[in-house]
Structures are given as structure tokens and as C-alpha cells.
């Protein structure tokens, strides 16, 4: 049987995680191709609806990556994003979708290796959980 390759959506802050992804590329670091990056002006712009939308549209995992605590370019965006992610994790548990499929990470623009590490960590985690139960049978992997 073909190995399950999850689809993971990563909402990345322009000032940290997105730049860290760029750095990871420049450093020729390998990370799984399962990550789909969405650049955000700040992790604080993440909306509850967008996270659920990603799951509804077939994501097996979603994570939001913002700046290190205290380092948000917009001062508090990353704290707000984290609170929202935690809220949606609770909702996911209530509606029967594993809350581990959603996560929030803090990193800085200088952490290229950490970006690759997070990508690996999430891919491993979602592979263990298996495909999202929302994905219908026979749908492309």
C-alpha cells in the first residue's frame, strides 16, 4: 500500500516563520514536501474560520507559526494567534476531530533549521494520526 502523504497547511508569519522557511531553503535543508505554506502579514491575522476551512477543504494538519514570544513585529499578534489556535483546538475536540492536527509554533526568522524541524515534527505527527477523517474515500492523497 502506498504510504500516506499528509497535506499540511502552515500559516506562516512574514516576519519569522516565512523568512525562516526562506532561510531553510538557502541552507539547503531538507524538509518534507507535505507542507503548504501560506504567508501571513502576522500570525495574529489568523482567523478561526480559516483554520476550520483548511480542514474542511482537505488538510490533514494545520499549523500556525508566529514570532518568538515578546518579539512580534506587531507587539501582540503571536499571543493572539496562539489563543485563537487553542480555542479552535478545543472546538476540534468537541466536534470529534483530533486536536493534535492543529498546532501553534514560535520561531524567529533566523531559525531555518527549526523551521525544517517543525515541518518534520508535524509531518510525523500527522502520519501517525493518519488521513483526516474528513477526507472522503478515494479522494486524491
Amino acid at each position: 500500500m502506498e504510504e500516506f502523504e499528509p497535506k499540511i497547511v502552515a500559516f506562516c508569519c512574514h516576519y519569522c516563520a516565512y523568512s525562516a522557511a526562506d532561510l531553510a531553503g538557502s541552507m539547503r535543508l531538507q524538509y518534507p514536501p507535505n507542507i503548504r505554506i501560506v504567508e501571513m502579514p502576522c500570525s495574529g491575522t489568523i482567523d478561526h474560520r480559516v483554520i476550520l476551512d483548511a480542514f474542511e477543504k482537505g488538510a490533514d494538519g494545520v499549523y500556525v507559526a508566529g514570532c518568538m514570544e515578546g518579539d512580534c513585529h506587531f507587539l501582540k499578534g503571536n499571543y493572539r494567534a496562539k489563543k485563537r489556535v487553542n480555542y479552535v483546538k478545543k472546538v476540534l475536540a468537541e466536534i470529534g476531530l483530533e486536536s493534535e492536527r492543529l498546532e501553534f509554533f514560535n520561531l524567529s526568522a533566523a531559525m531555518g533549521p527549526r523551521f525544517a524541524e517543525i515541518a518534520n515534527e508535524m509531518t510525523e505527527r500527522i502520519k501517525k494520526l493518519g488521513p483526516s477523517p474528513l477526507r472522503r474515500k478515494g479522494e486524491e492523497k
Binding site: 474560520r49 476550520l52 472546538v91 474528513l134
Partner: peptide
């Protein structure tokens, strides 16, 4: 509007999982 869309999405997911 935001809460309405979020609730709709959450209910759809819950029901699909069921």
C-alpha cells in the same frame, strides 16, 4: 457574520465525521 460562518463550518465537520 464571523461566528455564523464558524458555527456552520463546525457543525458541517461534526456531522460529516458522524
Amino acid at each position: 457574520e464571523k461566528e455564523t460562518e464558524f458555527l456552520a463550518s463546525a457543525l458541517r465537520i461534526k456531522r460529516q465525521l458522524e
